[in-house]
Amino acid sequence: MIIVLKNDQATAAIEELKQHFGSQQEIFVHNNRVAIQNADPSDLTPAEQAAAQEIITDVPAAVQASRLFHPEDTIIKTPHSTIGGKNFTLMAGPCSVESAEHILKMAQVVKNAGATVLRGGAFKPRTSPYSFQGLGKEGLIALRNAADRLELDVVTEVMDVEQVPLVEAYTDIFQIGARNMQNFSLLKAVGKTRKPVMLKRGMSATVADVLNATEYIAAGGNHQIMIVERGIRTFDNKYTRNTFDVGVIPVLQKLTHYPVIADPSHAAGHTEFVTPLALAGVAAGANGLIVEIHDDPAHAFSDGAQALKPNEFNEMVVKTNAVRQALQSIE
């Protein structure tokens, strides 16, 4: 249950509730709200009931992710970005870090377009074990140097628990890929850090699945979480790589306080569809976009088919800004 305490009694009531339940059940506190696992109103003392303004018994499993527990938007601040709430954050870069020279060139494109976060994979989970797997630490160094030179933040994928300390030293935001969304050991590991975490929805994950995955991160004490909709696997992937679930963006924003980011590149799988899906994500209210770009997609080390060329990326940014302005004009 979640207990919404009367403001003038909150401090004393929180201490009493911690003493009452803390040794037996998980208890979470956010401002004047206290969530207690496996408890119901009959377990409260008369004094605790008197201090309650409201008692919510229909509580989701992912209680820390829920707006019932945390009504206001989570705002994540990195050195160069403010993510969540009314802010819109643009993230872009190549799928893979291919060389120091290339990532710096792409970082300049990102910067010129007004984006504040540089993406790039140093470790790449590929469908085939014979495909390019990333440059590893060399890629992380190149990514960090390019971002620092142009005053950008870094988001890059961490694939397993052992990589967490290494990636943490170079990134501003951990990315948990779709294939690892339910790698609970990895979620626990990044939950123990204090770096923001970008969690991508799994290819077949329900809304409840992704919210429960965020709870593994939050349970470790890290509440700087953002959720990415990157398309899900459905019965038809002949024309697009995945099915972009645009409807899940407002659904997640209703259910959770975490920022929701749209990834039109992995949803589309083909360059010609990336911009339309980006516009759909923005129109649906996404808090930002993460987009793949490349100056020579035909020779990209990975996912070239879905990468926008610099001029195409710039055109996408112009169109997404126009959609955002139109939405702001009617608010």
Rank of each mutant, 00 (worst) to 15 (best):
V4F: 06
N7R: 13
N7E: 11
Q9W: 14
A10I: 02
A13M: 04
E16R: 15
Q24Y: 14
Q25W: 09
H30Y: 14
N31T: 14
V34G: 01
Q37V: 10
S42H: 07
L44I: 01
T45Q: 14
A51G: 07
A51Y: 07
Q53C: 11
I55W: 06
T57L: 03
D58Y: 08
R67H: 09
R67W: 06
F69N: 02
P71G: 00
E72Q: 12
D73H: 10
T74G: 10
I75Y: 12
K77V: 06
S81M: 04
G85D: 05
G85Q: 06
A92R: 07
P94I: 04
C95W: 02
V97H: 13
E98L: 15
H102I: 12
K105G: 04
N112K: 13
G114R: 05
A115L: 02
F123A: 03
F123E: 00
F132N: 02
L135W: 11
G136A: 07
K137H: 10
E138G: 12
E138T: 11
A142M: 02
A146V: 04
A147C: 08
R149N: 15
V154Y: 09
M159V: 14
E162W: 13
P165Y: 00
E168V: 09
R179V: 05
N180R: 10
N183G: 06
S185A: 12
A189E: 03
T193M: 12
T193R: 10
K195V: 10
V197W: 03
M198K: 14
L199G: 00
S204E: 11
V207D: 05
V207K: 13
N212M: 08
G220W: 07
G221M: 05
Q224H: 10
M226Q: 08
R230N: 00
R230S: 00
T234Y: 02
N237P: 13
T240M: 12
R241H: 10
N242W: 06
T243A: 07
D245G: 07
V248Y: 06
V251K: 14
L255W: 02
T256K: 14
D263K: 14
H266N: 04
H266Y: 03
H266A: 04
A267L: 07
G269F: 15
T271V: 14
T271S: 13
F273I: 11
V274F: 02
T275M: 09
P276D: 00
V282N: 00
A284Q: 04
D295W: 12
D295V: 11
P297M: 04
P297W: 03
A298D: 15
P310V: 01
F313M: 09
E315Y: 14
M316A: 00
M316V: 03
V317Y: 01
V317M: 00
V318G: 12
V318N: 15
V318H: 13
V323S: 09
R324D: 06
A326N: 05
L327M: 13
Q328T: 10
